[in-house]
């Protein structure tokens, strides 16, 4: 049984350690916050906040308090606010231990593509290029294949890159893969998924 969205998020949360400052992307990565348990994790929101809290109760939404996905959120006792230049100073400066984000494609060399599809989807990179260039560890959480059933783990990315050689770990619905010097290493398989299943669903070199 491949992992579902929540199980992928739960697996990603295992990568986080006590004391880490972490940036979570939009989509499945956001769910990771639900699985950090007792670990002392401080979430950064790149629009200018450390110590991001959960969604507000209905009626307590504050238009001045949103996350990078423009969703209403809350603050915690530890929260601090700052401007965008300071926010990306801490990202670029390597102060954020890890970023967990989604992807359209990842290559065997750890190249990441997640910001545009030429001629079709033009949204922009937001803070993703800064994050993958600056944070300590880049963890991608995504489905192993796209909606057409094609693999998202490629020898070379076909879409415009967000970063070159930046991905450290990939968590998909099929398992966990680490980016090594000569290709991807399978670290873990989802229940009832075999190494061969992962190889069959992967174009990238698996060593």
């Amino acid at each position: 049984m491949p992992w579902d969205r929540n199980q992928m998020a739960e697996r990603a949360a295992k990568e986080l350690e006590d004391g880490m400052y972490v940036n979570l992307g939009i989509g499945i990565p956001t769910l990771v916050a639900n699985y950090v348990g007792d670990k002392d994790i401080t979430l950064q929101s790149e629009n200018g906040m450390l110590g991001m809290g959960p969604f507000p109760f209905e009626g307590e939404e504050d238009p001045d308090l949103i996350n990078a996905g423009k969703q209403t959120i809350t603050e915690l006792r530890r929260t601090s606010y700052f401007d965008s230049a300071t926010s990306f100073g801490m990202i670029r400066g390597g102060k954020i231990a890890a970023a967990i984000l989604g992807a359209m494609e990842v290559s065997e060399a750890g190249d990441l593509a997640n910001w545009m599809i030429p001629g079709k989807l033009v949204k922009g990179m937001g803070g993703a290029m800064d994050l993958v260039a600056g944070v300590g560890r880049v963890i991608v959480v995504m489905d192993h294949t796209n909606k057409k059933g094609e693999t998202k783990l490629l020898r070379e990315c076909t879409l415009p890159l967000t970063g070159k050689g930046v991905v450290d770990l990939i968590i998909t619905n099929l398992g966990v893969l680490e980016v090594g010097h000569k290709g991807l290493h399978i670290l873990e398989c989802a229940p009832d998924v075999s190494h061969d299943d992962i190889r069959a669903a992967t174009e990238a070199t698996i060593v």
Partner: peptide, 21 residues
Amino acid sequence: YLSGELEIEFNPQGTLAERMR
């Protein structure tokens, strides 16, 4: 943008903030 009426220069968010600063 897609019809060519509007030009866009994409800047990574942190690069845009730092360019202003």
